[in-house]
Amino acid sequence: MAGTPHVDMLRSPLGRARGLGSAKAGSAHWRAQRTTGLALLPLSLWFIYSVIHLAGAPRAAVMHWMSAPVPMVLMLALIIATFHHLQMGLQTVIEDYVHHEPAKMVALLLARGGPWLLGLICFVSVLKIGF
């Protein structure tokens, strides 16, 4: 920047900030991110155990395993927690790094729709395998 710095506008910081404040929903997002993260701790460890347990297993064995109530419910819980956590995480990353407003809006919509769709596909697949 050339020359002596100077300010040639009168608008106050408060005037600029008005209407751009908190949406009053930040803590719900923060809490949900932690809650789903906490739920994913045991769920993902159980999932790793299950993947090893099912390594190389034929389809019939996988179907038999998933038709039992506990593995099925844990899979469904894992899917819900994973995709909810993913959606919130992607949202946070996009809000932090994408500053171009139209691109941000598109990215946020995709970060919401993508996990929703994938999650539903996984959810229905587990039900179809199990029943």
Binding site: P115, C122, I129
Partner: peptide, 25 residues
């Protein structure tokens, strides 16, 4: 953050595996 996004991409593989198991041999 990088691993978080990578795990997000990895859910595609999980989805494929579950859909395949639900579809056919």
């Amino acid at each position: 953050r990088v691993t978080g996004v990578a795990l997000g991409v990895g859910t595609l593989l999980l989805t494929w595996w579950l859909v395949a198991a639900a579809t056919s041999d």
